[in-house]
């Protein structure tokens, strides 16, 4: 068997991806593809475990048995998703230890939304409903992506996310139908989360230089702007149907285009938040670091015990 040249390998790789075949661990792949995926899946995993915190804060306070049980199950799923995603990234050659170290050292990025505070119970509902709807639109797209382990993880995650959306929506419906104070709480939360949620899908296409290659390699199959538009078209009528509103007077349906128009978020804010300077970045990482350090003795003791048992 003769060694194939880099170009031959690349041609084969791109042909496989273009056919819609999945790339599997152990396949030849361009280094840029591997690095991009490691970064992207790692960020996605970090987002899940940092994302446990804003909602997890409300577990002790959740009103009623059903809400409390549901919230524990939801935040548990986020740990589960982080677990699945770190594993998908590990198949590309980076260990979970390394990825977690990078996160805790402040060297890794994660979704902007989890760096905002959650001052009221309604934030739990809005995160489930709005943030997770935006997430699912993105993730259903990623489930069609070319890298097998990531796409497989996404399939399961999307299934569980649909539970997240429904429980969030259900919590907001209860508030919208409740006392004036409950209703105001829901409206306030939607106002606060609207723009951060729009930012979740990433910078606008014209400022997103890697999109072209990511699309060609089917790391993504839709652009950031497409995903964002899909979210707005889906969520705005849902919000208005509950008699609630989005904080954007220019958000109107454009018959001709078949889409809602909306005001672009402040992209400078997204940059700041992603680069570590959002309202809650420091606190989120501090909390993660603390629980990581407090758990170290447990990880070490169980490893030591197993090592002795193996040696015996």
């Amino acid at each position: 068997m003769t060694e194939k040249s880099h170009n031959e390998q690349l041609t084969e790789f791109e042909a496989r991806v273009a056919r819609g075949d999945k790339v599997e661990p152990g396949d030849w792949m361009p280094d840029e593809y591997r690095q991009n995926l490691i970064r992207m899946i790692g960020q996605h995993a970090h987002s899940e475990i940092v994302g446990q915190l804003p909602e997890g804060k409300w577990i002790p306070y959740a009103p009623g048995f059903r809400r409390k049980l549901t919230l524990v199950a939801k935040v548990q799923d986020e740990a589960g998703h982080g677990q699945l995603l770190y594993r998908a990234a590990e198949t590309l050659g980076k260990s979970r230890e390394e990825m977690i170290d990078e996160l805790l050292a402040g060297k890794a990025k994660y979704s902007n939304v989890f760096n905002y505070p959650t001052p009221t119970w309604a934030d739990v509902g809005v995160i489930g409903w709005l943030v997770d709807t935006a997430a699912v639109i993105n993730q259903s797209m990623l489930a069609q992506g070319s890298y097998g382990p990531y796409a497989r993880a996404m399939k399961r995650i999307c299934y569980e996310e649909s539970f997240h959306i429904k429980q969030g929506y259900d919590a907001i419906v209860a508030l919208a139908k409740g006392t004036p104070a409950q209703r105001a709480m829901a409206q306030d939360a939607i106002h606060r989360w609207w723009y951060p949620t729009l930012m979740m899908s990433g910078p606008p296409d014209k400022a997103s230089p890697h999109t072209e290659k990511a699309m060609r390699w089917r790391i993504k199959t839709k652009t950031n702007d497409q995903v964002r538009q899909e979210f707005v078209d889906l969520i705005v009528p849902q919000i208005r149907a509950l008699g609630l509103d989005v904080p954007d007077r220019d958000c109107v349906y454009d018959e001709a285009a078949g889409h809602y128009r909306f005001t672009q978020p402040d992209w400078e804010e997204l940059k700041r938040v992603i680069n570590g300077d959002g309202p809650m970045n420091k606190e989120r990482l501090d909390v993660r670091r603390r629980s990581h350090e407090e758990g170290r003795w447990v990880r070490e003791a169980l490893a030591a015990k197993a090592k002795r048992a193996n040696a015996a």
């Binding site: 594993r87 590990e90 260990s95 979970r96 230890e97 977690i100 170290d101 990581h292 170290r296 990880r299 070490e300 169980l302 490893a303 197993a306």
Partner: peptide, 9 residues
């Protein structure tokens, strides 16, 4: 000190 996340199964 380096971390351990255990083996994978």
């Amino acid at each position: 000190m380096s971390d351990t996340q255990w083996e994978t199964y």
